[in-house]
Write a protein that binds this DNA or RNA. Sequence first.
DNA 1: TGCTAAACGGAGACTGTCTCCGCATTCCTG
DNA 2: CAGGAATGCGGAGACAGTCTCCGTTTAGCA
Lengths: 203, 203
Amino acid sequence: MVPVTEQAGTSDGARPMRADARRNYEKIVAAAREVFAERGAEGSLDEIARRAGVGPGTLYRHFPTREDLIDELMRDWTSRVVADSDNAVAAGRPARETLVRWFDDLVRHLTLHRGAAAKLSAAMDDRSSPIFRKCQQLADANERVVRHLAETGELRRGVEPRHLMRLVAGVAVVADAAAVTDEEIAAMLGIVIDGVVLDPAPS
Amino acid sequence: MVPVTEQAGTSDGARPMRADARRNYEKIVAAAREVFAERGAEGSLDEIARRAGVGPGTLYRHFPTREDLIDELMRDWTSRVVADSDNAVAAGRPARETLVRWFDDLVRHLTLHRGAAAKLSAAMDDRSSPIFRKCQQLADANERVVRHLAETGELRRGVEPRHLMRLVAGVAVVADAAAVTDEEIAAMLGIVIDGVVLDPAPS
DNA sequence: TGCTAAACGGAGACTGTCTCCGCATTCCTG
DNA sequence: CAGGAATGCGGAGACAGTCTCCGTTTAGCA
């Protein structure tokens, strides 16, 4: 059991943060949430520092790169997606229905902030990226869902989870860059799903 | 018959460019080709001006935005893709094979320069973008291929060409951002194709 | 309370975008 | 071929963003 006092910015094992550092850390995270929500994942970092009421130096000490900051914003978020994948598996619904829900969740989460989907999908193969681990978690969650369906024999042979992950990431990226309606996203995901499930699709 | 002396930068209908202007225009295009090839579609515009041996002002007069420059680099390129689509239709191959070739062409062309795929797919819905017309041409070419296959009855009902266009653009974008092998690209496109063709897929 | 390690923050170096306008070049006309 | 608009040039510099360095401040402990 992890102590409930475990909080953002608390070192994992290292010495606890000084009170002022913790305070600033949290102000920065709050400001980042604001700015990213307004301006997307490419919002100005100095602007975030300004809104947080700290100097740029302070921001960069806590978060050496933009990705580190994004990583922090995605902290709880990722675990929620992972939980969604567990539910998807546990529910025992037919493959098509499971995938519709799961992909929809995935896209919705990937496009939380404008520009985030592109960052995430770029980091998927970049071990040096601070958000690489997050991407791995998402990919693992996806793999769990896909493997589960494969075992029930409802998917075509040879379907690789990572290809589906990338396809869905692709959908998320274009949906994020251009203004694509939810219906269109659903239609695109529908094509992908038709491409991997075995059961006869209508028409 | 269009006069053979018609050249890049020659106005369409307006007064011909002054000799020095034409010279600079071409130096800029050559430099842009270099820089974009080396650094991707986000390469520095001032760097392009420097290599072309002109001032930034000159570059911006000829090409007010980065997209205008990309547009010029894609001049002949787009027509080649359009020709490919005509060939694809004319060959009269089975749907699956036609799509494999066509999507492969599309992805290869979209990822010509790093970052270009993202720009293209963002411009697809942005009427104000200088490259919007290019995107339309690509989309039209795709629509021709898809509609043709639909008419031969080899595709599932309700498949919208623009959804396929976006899906393929998505594949191109993720392939471009991350380092994805040709085999993986083919596999992803294969899933999309399985999602739209009617004939029984192997396994 | 006084000391030390930790953290702060802002000046400023650097890079990239983009504009403005005095100067140079072209090319037309007489 | 000369002269004068018209056209185009180009670089200084405003502006915005990233990121660092280091003198100053502060927290937390003894």
